[in-house]
Nucleic acid binder design. Structure first.
Lengths: 417, 417
DNA sequence: GGCTTTTGTTCACGGTCAGAGCATAAACTG
DNA sequence: CAGTTTATGCTCTGACCGTGAACAAAAGCC
């Protein structure tokens, strides 16, 4: 992102570039490929890799495929290297995972909860602290995805669960008592839509896309613009709320406090309402999935509302691609016709010539969790982050036991990964 | 923006940083202040300034105020330094100016036109070419602001003037015959709203603001998000069209091809329609100004629609500041009460706690022209741009006569600068 | 007029990367 | 199976850059 000014910053900058390249490609590229991609001299790459390996950040393995010349190696995560703890908190359950550099995910824990701030975040905090203690300095950060707007580094509102300015960092670590202020080393709290978009930008269908629009459909609808691989999260961190614009002409009051929000017409709650079932409070995920699978009419209504809103956003923002995650994937698969039919008349004439691609996410329901991981590594893969690592690893990293590879059942929804 | 990788890139990067700092502060800071601001050693700054002065890019003048120690100097534009040609094309007239590094503007020409592509751009192209010939290599680029969406580097649509995919670069320079492709050295065509937002970000009320929303009101309404000093112009360059979302619940067909656009309810055309006068086709600027000054009712209707749309966008994007330019300044001065009253009920509850500031532009009607200038310097103030300059100035720049300092009357509207 | 303060200039020094030359390790060739 | 080809890793030299200290310069202050 930013530029180096002095020679020593230059070295730090190149260390970060190399490490990020390894992470972004999922530890698949060989050293010689990386050398070319980053326009480095072979000697420079040699020094950089050696340094990162010595710091316990990288570990080279022989490259699998046999090629013509001298065999090269694939730099990947160090066996005692940094781990990001990532959490996806939904309205009815949470999932905790440890993630290596490169993006390999090991699910550590999955638990349902009662929808209250204490009921959800208390046990989660305990689990996080236990794993942090077990992993020691290998745990370089905690990223948490939450299904509501996040303000000023941790205050979360989820109107339909009755969460009002819930201080998530404080509830996760009661002793540290941070009043909304982002404690150094505290959890990185983010909106699930914004984090799903981040994952999509790094490892999904928005990879390499300069301007993309990501929409995340769960109980309600979130949306955010992704520019140059970064979701635009607003001034206070809560800028992924495209669902709270009155794009579909409704006049129903929204729990958010406004009226006629697009979000009222798309998502699990809208599906349930459409068929006359009870909705709200984070309940009814299974019924909603049943409706999605069986009620042609409710699906069509959802898809129509989705399409109309997409048209408005495409007019305004001119994205190259529109991606859908959560229920959006199935909604698009089952009713792309209605969606596109509702979208087209809402487009400006000049947009109809070259409409953006619309695509389901490649990450399924894993987006928010992966985005939480990326948010941790985004902070770690900086000169400052690597300096901290170096300080916490005086010479040789102590032998930490591998994280238990028990993979619990993951949160509901398909998991293509 | 991006970072240097090698030592020599580092030098180029620091040259750019210094030059940009001079430009951004309007050539007001002293060399010692710049040295501190950029965290440079005095020796480095010395070498950099000397190099830039020798290249004909900077020229140091003694600092005006007398301080305690050894007197310092103020680096400013070189008398034979680079000039950006900037053009603001409106529906009924255009204005051409030459701009020095640092932002000093000299208006070169102002002319009304008939609203046709040829009528507007033919004479403009002649004027531009004449000045380019006069200035030689000092003219480092041409930036053009146009009141409609700009696609793929130059194709412009202005529905209410009947412009459909007008190839602006080709019409400005018929001999070069670029078919929409951005010719190297060709004009940088941009949307007036996006460029007004750019100017606001660099020299107006969005300076230093991480996330801001800028709305430009002329005959109709344009809007764009500004992040880190950069307006988000979409995948094809036409992402400043917040006016073409159905935010106010109308159902009137819009010339753009969609229905119920916000833009139908705000701007000169909306004012004229409200009082029953003829509108469209870029005519009626003076009548609209009269309506704005006299009709309480039409102004209130405009302000209400503006406020309602702002609420939706604030919900979605969480900007820190909302700025208004063009007629928006007067609209806000005359009816901020109605605007805010319409905005508030549309906000999410969490936004009502900390609503963004709303402010009239500090640049009045000059924004688009200044933004056109900034777009030229944004391309010039890069390692590549400075290399081109060095190549076109083999050793010592030839003596070019100063641009005539005749300042024509500027385009209609107040000009605080 | 001498002292203090601030800034510009010069230069030795350490750090960084590019590039060339050489070593290495595989596949290919006959 | 031995020589050739090819691609890569390693090492060293050279050029470049910014830092920081020492010195010079130019003003205000006492």
């Amino acid at each position: 992102m930013n530029g180096a000014t002095t020679s020593v910053e230059l070295r730090a900058h190149n260390r970060v570039r190399l490490l990020r390249a390894v992470h972004d490609c999922g530890a698949t590229r060989t050293r010689s490929q990386l050398t070319r991609d980053l326009h480095l001299a072979r000697g420079t790459a040699s020094v950089l890799v050696a340094g990162l390996a010595e710091d316990g950040l990288l570990h080279e393995e022989p490259a699998p495929g046999a090629a013509r010349g001298r065999p090269t190696h694939v730099p990947g995560p160090h066996p005692r290297g940094p781990l990001a703890l990532a959490v996806d908190v939904r309205e009815d359950a949470w999932e905790l995972a440890a993630c290596e550099l490169g993006g390999r995910v090991t699910v550590l824990d999955v638990r349902p909860h009662d929808g209250t701030p204490e009921g959800a975040l208390g046990p989660l905090g305990e689990a996080v602290r236990a794993h942090q203690a077990r992993l020691g300095p290998r745990a370089v950060g905690v990223g948490v995805a939450l299904p509501g707007p996040v303000r000023h580094g941790g205050l979360v509102d989820i109107p339909h669960l009755g969460w009002r300015s819930v201080d998530v960092p404080a509830l996760l670590a009661p002793d540290r008592g941070g009043a909304g202020a982002p404690v150094p080393g505290g959890p990185l709290v983010g909106n699930d839509t914004a984090l799903a978009a981040l994952a999509e930008a790094r490892r999904g269908r928005l990879r390499g896309v300069r301007v993309g629009l990501h929409l995340h459909v769960d109980f309600d609808l979130g949306g955010v613009l992704v520019v140059d691989g970064r979701p635009l999260d607003g001034a206070g961190g809560s800028g992924a709320e495209f669902g709270h614009m009155p794009l579909t002409g409704g006049d129903r009051p929204c729990p958010c406090g406004a009226t006629g929000c697009w979000s009222m017409d798309v998502g699990a709650n809208a599906l349930l309402r459409r068929v006359g079932l009870a909705y709200g409070g984070g309940r009814g995920r299974e019924q909603a999935e049943h409706v999605l699978a069986t009620s042609e009419e409710a699906v069509a209504a959802n898809a129509t509302a989705l399409g109309r809103g997409i048209a408005a956003l495409v007019n305004a923002l001119d994205p190259e691609v529109v991606t859908l995650s959560g229920h959006g994937v199935e909604l698009y698969e089952r009713a792309s016709g209605q969606l596109l039919a509702a979208c087209e008349p809402g487009l400006m004439a000049i947009r109809r010539d070259r409409p953006p691609r619309i695509a389901g996410s490649a990450l399924g329901w894993r987006g928010s969790l992966l985005g939480a991981m990326e948010s941790v590594f985004d902070e770690f893969l900086t000169p400052e982050g690597l300096d901290r690592w170096r300080e916490s690893h005086p010479d040789q990293a102590p032998d930490t036991p591998e994280p238990q590879n028990v993979t619990h059942s993951t949160l509901k929804g398909r998991n293509p990964i």
